[in-house]
Design a protein around this nucleic acid. Structure first.
Length: 420
RNA sequence: GGAGGGGUGGCCGAGUGGUUUAAGGCGCACGCCUGGAAAGCGUGUUGGUGGGCCAAAACCUGCCUCGAGGGUUCGAAUCCCUCCUCCUCCGCCA
């Protein structure tokens, strides 16, 4: 959620920034509705001030056993005026809130303009697309042949877009998860094992709701939702809190399952484990001082990139253009790993700076040491990494001519074998 | 699942319809006192959101805020309803 005061005071600047994302947003309307709301608020508060004052007088009359009927009758009228005005202001406020909800975060100045993924800018490369002396096989074929991925039985259990891994496949997933958690812990992230279900307020706080309600699984009979990413529980841990400035930055890492309905992705990535209803992911989240957020984003990007580098997987890092960015993001890097079966780079991580947009929705503040004033923190998150896609990338990039998989050195202590 | 009891400021804790603009204590900050400190004394100490002052800061001022949301009332921390959460006991359970 954008700061309504910023829109009120500098609407042109906000419009300019939003233009980078493309589309049209109700900035002028927000300014107008906000003005209307504040105007009526003054009237309401004057009425309430009067009621408070006269109520004191009534109390004083009652104590002195004097008649207060006239004032009570007067306040009865004032009370109904207040009620009517309050109802009107509630309507206006809801309208204003809806308009603000339709307005995405403003991109940082370094974000390039552009309409879609074609306008993203590659900012970093590691390795080269893998070359083979034989015909490489797709991970879903390899996985089934090696008996480490089983799609048919997973479909029997839960339907399409589910898979299961077993044997060394399951161990590889666990190895990746443990390796990535350790990797993050070395970089100062505190490990968290959060609930995999979250309530409506949490989904709203991180910005999945109200816009993407159709993309998550709702769990009956409680009003709970399977988390689409650990960003939801990790960021909402501090929802409604005022943090000490000395506590910043707060850095969390969690390995969780993630659940996405993938509505609108019908027919896309139907083979393999690239796009599933359930997948595992190691997620990084940071709460930082606003002045530190750009540097922290670069650092988090390195935290994610170094996972791929340690594994030895070829990838590139893309700075997303305005048109390809998410709703709540002010800056996003996508890490894309080379996937031989696709013959192209495939997203394996996304590192984003939400500036204060999420913090404002979720009311996460900090109190600066000198002053008593509270400010919103900046929130960052990034995957490091998506387990399933990393597993697929390892199968495909490290397959050998005899149909086996070379285990990356850094995983050997976890795998207890050099090859699958 | 059953029965009962709680949720008040940074913390503890009083408060069952009107001098409560939330008592008192602890902690913290500043000041006085002191050679310096302790003690003592004094002042301040939830957050949010409006208005005023050319802008900012400071300052003045209104409204809201006693787990959350509704309701009753001229007036609600206090009464009623719904929800969340914590604790105790019983039952069940990885």
């Amino acid at each position: 959620m954008l700061d309504v005061r910023r829109i009120r005071e500098r609407p042109e600047e906000v419009k300019e920034r939003l233009a980078i994302k493309g589309g049209s947003y109700p900035v002028d309307q927000i300014v107008e509705v906000d003005r209307e709301r504040r105007k009526r608020l003054v009237d309401l508060e004057n009425l309430k001030a009067r009621r408070n004052r006269v109520s004191q007088e009534i109390a004083s009359h009652k104590r002195n056993r004097e008649d207060a009927e006239e004032k009570i009758a007067e306040m009865r009228r004032v009370g109904s005026d207040i009620q009517a005005l309050e109802d009107r202001i509630t309507e206006i406020s809801q309208h204003l809130h809806e308009l603000l909800m339709e307005t995405p975060n403003t991109p940082l100045t370094m974000v390039p303009a552009g309409a879609d993924a074609n306008d993203n800018v590659a900012v970093y490369h590691y390795g080269q697309p893998t070359t083979f002396t034989f015909e490489p096989i797709a991970h879903w074929m390899l996985g089934e042949r090696l008996g480490i991925l089983d799609f048919e039985r997973a479909h029997k259990l839960a339907g399409a877009r589910f898979s299961l891994s077993k044997g060394l496949g399951a161990r590889l997933a666990r190895a990746l998860s443990n390796f990535m958690l350790d990797h993050a812990a070395e970089r100062g992230y505190e490990e968290v094992l959060p609930p995999f279900l979250a309530n409506r307020d949490a989904l709203f706080g991180t910005g999945q709701f109200p816009k993407f309600e159709n993309d998550v699984f709702r769990v009956e009979p409680a009003e709970l939702f399977l988390i689409p990413t650990a960003e939801v529980p990790l960021t909402n841990m501090h929802r409604g809190e005022i943090l000490a400035q000395t506590a910043l930055p707060i850095k969390y890492v969690a390995a969780t399952s993630c659940f996405r309905f993938e509505a609108g992705a019908a027919g896309r990535d139907t083979r393999g484990i690239i796009r599933q209803h359930q997948f595992e992911k190691v997620e990084l989240v940071q709460f930082v001082h606003p002045e530190m957020s750009e540097a922290a984003t670069e650092q988090m990007r390195r935290d994610a990139e170094s996972v791929l580098e340690d594994l030895g997987l070829p990838f590139r890092t893309m700075l997303l253009c305005g048109g390809d960015m998410g709703f709540t993001q002010a800056l996003t890097y996508d890490l894309e790993v080379w996937m031989p079966s696709y013959g192209r780079y495939v997203e394996i991580s996304s590192v984003s700076n939400m500036t204060d947009y999420q913090a404002r929705r979720a009311e996460i503040r900090y109190r600066s040491q000198g002053s008593r004033k509270t400010e919103f923190v900046h929130t960052l998150n990034g995957s490091a990494l998506a387990i399933g896609r990393t597993l697929a990338a390892i199968l495909e990039n490290f397959q050998t001519a005899d149909g086996h998989i070379r285990v990356p050195d850094v995983l050997e202590p976890y795998m207890k074998t050099e090859r699958i």
